[in-house]
Lab assay of single mutants.
Amino acid sequence: MTYKLILNGKTLKGETTTEAVDAATAEKIFKQYANDNGVDGEWTYDDATKTFTVTE
């Protein structure tokens, strides 16, 4: 399945997608991606749209 991440960081904003077997796997990938890019904030997930959002 395709999952989407919306980044609302102070210095980085944008979107990315990943292919993952489930939401938990996608979350791990996205949290590593956000960490690698210096984004740390409040996480939400919308199962209907398979979208994670992180807001600093």
Score class of each variant (00 low, 15 high):
Met1Lys: 13
Met1Gln: 14
Met1Gly: 13
Met1Arg: 09
Thr2Val: 13
Thr2Leu: 15
Thr2Ile: 14
Tyr3Gln: 01
Tyr3Val: 02
Tyr3Pro: 01
Tyr3Lys: 01
Tyr3Asp: 01
Tyr3Trp: 08
Lys4Ala: 05
Lys4Arg: 13
Leu5Lys: 00
Leu5Pro: 00
Leu5Trp: 03
Leu5Glu: 01
Ile6Asp: 03
Ile6Glu: 04
Ile6Arg: 05
Leu7Ser: 03
Leu7Glu: 02
Leu7Ile: 15
Asn8Asp: 09
Asn8Trp: 14
Asn8Ser: 09
Asn8Val: 13
Asn8Ala: 08
Gly9Met: 11
Gly9His: 06
Gly9Leu: 13
Gly9Ser: 09
Lys10Trp: 10
Lys10Leu: 13
Lys10Met: 12
Lys10Asn: 13
Lys10Gly: 11
Lys10His: 09
Lys10Ile: 12
Thr11Tyr: 14
Thr11Asn: 12
Thr11Asp: 11
Thr11Gln: 10
Leu12Phe: 15
Lys13Ile: 11
Lys13Gly: 05
Lys13Arg: 15
Lys13Ser: 11
Gly14Phe: 13
Gly14Arg: 13
Gly14Thr: 14
Glu15Lys: 07
Glu15His: 11
Thr16Glu: 06
Thr16Met: 15
Thr16Val: 15
Thr16Leu: 15
Thr16His: 14
Thr17Ala: 08
Thr17Val: 10
Thr17Gly: 04
Thr17Leu: 11
Thr17Trp: 14
Thr18Ala: 11
Thr18Lys: 04
Thr18Phe: 06
Thr18Trp: 05
Glu19Ala: 09
Glu19Leu: 14
Glu19Trp: 12
Ala20Thr: 05
Ala20Gln: 05
Ala20Leu: 02
Ala20Met: 02
Ala20Glu: 03
Ala20Pro: 01
Ala20Ser: 06
Ala20Asp: 03
Val21Pro: 10
Val21Tyr: 07
Val21Thr: 13
Val21Trp: 11
Asp22Glu: 04
Asp22Pro: 01
Asp22Asn: 08
Ala23Asn: 06
Ala23Trp: 12
Ala24Tyr: 11
Ala24Trp: 09
Ala24His: 11
Ala24Gly: 08
Ala24Glu: 13
Thr25Gln: 12
Thr25Pro: 02
Thr25Ser: 13
Thr25Lys: 06
Thr25Gly: 08
Thr25Met: 10
Thr25Phe: 07
Ala26Trp: 01
Ala26Tyr: 00
Ala26Gln: 00
Glu27Val: 05
Glu27Thr: 04
Glu27Met: 12
Glu27Leu: 14
Glu27Phe: 15
Glu27Ser: 08
Glu27Asp: 05
Glu27Lys: 12
Glu27His: 14
Lys28Asp: 07
Lys28Leu: 12
Lys28Met: 12
Lys28Phe: 09
Lys28Pro: 03
Lys28Gln: 13
Lys28Ala: 14
Ile29Glu: 06
Phe30Thr: 00
Phe30Asp: 00
Phe30His: 01
Lys31Glu: 04
Lys31Asn: 05
Lys31Phe: 07
Lys31Ala: 06
Gln32Tyr: 06
Gln32Val: 09
Gln32Pro: 02
Gln32Phe: 05
Gln32Thr: 09
Gln32Met: 10
Gln32Lys: 14
Tyr33Asp: 01
Tyr33Gln: 03
Tyr33Arg: 03
Ala34Asn: 03
Ala34Asp: 00
Ala34Met: 06
Ala34Ser: 05
Asn35His: 15
Asn35Met: 13
Asn35Ala: 14
Asn35Glu: 15
Asp36Met: 13
Asp36Glu: 11
Asp36Gln: 13
Asp36Gly: 06
Asn37Met: 15
Asn37His: 15
Asn37Glu: 08
Asn37Pro: 01
Asn37Lys: 15
Gly38Thr: 04
Gly38Ala: 07
Gly38Asp: 08
Gly38Glu: 06
Gly38Ile: 05
Gly38Met: 07
Gly38Pro: 01
Gly38His: 10
Gly38Asn: 10
Val39Tyr: 08
Val39Pro: 02
Val39His: 04
Asp40Ala: 11
Asp40Thr: 14
Asp40Gly: 09
Asp40Ser: 14
Asp40His: 15
Asp40Lys: 11
Asp40Val: 14
Asp40Tyr: 15
Gly41Met: 03
Gly41Gln: 02
Gly41Val: 02
Gly41Tyr: 03
Gly41Ile: 02
Glu42Asp: 13
Glu42Gly: 05
Glu42Ser: 10
Glu42Phe: 12
Glu42Tyr: 13
Trp43Tyr: 02
Trp43Ser: 01
Trp43Ala: 01
Trp43Glu: 00
Trp43Met: 04
Thr44His: 12
Thr44Pro: 00
Thr44Gly: 07
Thr44Phe: 11
Thr44Asn: 08
Thr44Asp: 07
Tyr45Phe: 07
Tyr45Thr: 01
Asp46Thr: 05
Asp46Glu: 08
Asp46Pro: 00
Asp47Ala: 14
Asp47Lys: 09
Asp47Asn: 10
Asp47Tyr: 10
Asp47Met: 09
Asp47Gly: 09
Asp47Phe: 09
Ala48Ile: 11
Ala48Leu: 15
Ala48Ser: 12
Thr49Arg: 07
Thr49Glu: 07
Thr49His: 06
Thr49Ser: 10
Thr49Gly: 05
Thr49Pro: 02
Thr49Asn: 09
Lys50Val: 04
Lys50Arg: 15
Lys50Thr: 04
Lys50Ala: 06
Lys50Glu: 03
Thr51Ile: 07
Thr51Tyr: 03
Thr51Asn: 02
Thr51Glu: 04
Thr51His: 03
Thr51Asp: 01
Phe52Pro: 00
Phe52Ala: 00
Phe52Val: 01
Phe52His: 02
Phe52Lys: 00
Thr53Leu: 06
Thr53Asp: 02
Thr53His: 06
Thr53Lys: 06
Thr53Ile: 09
Val54Trp: 03
Val54Tyr: 03
Thr55Pro: 01
Thr55Asn: 09
Thr55Gln: 05
Thr55Phe: 07
Thr55Gly: 05
Thr55Ile: 08
Glu56Phe: 09
Glu56Gly: 06
Glu56His: 07
Glu56Ala: 08
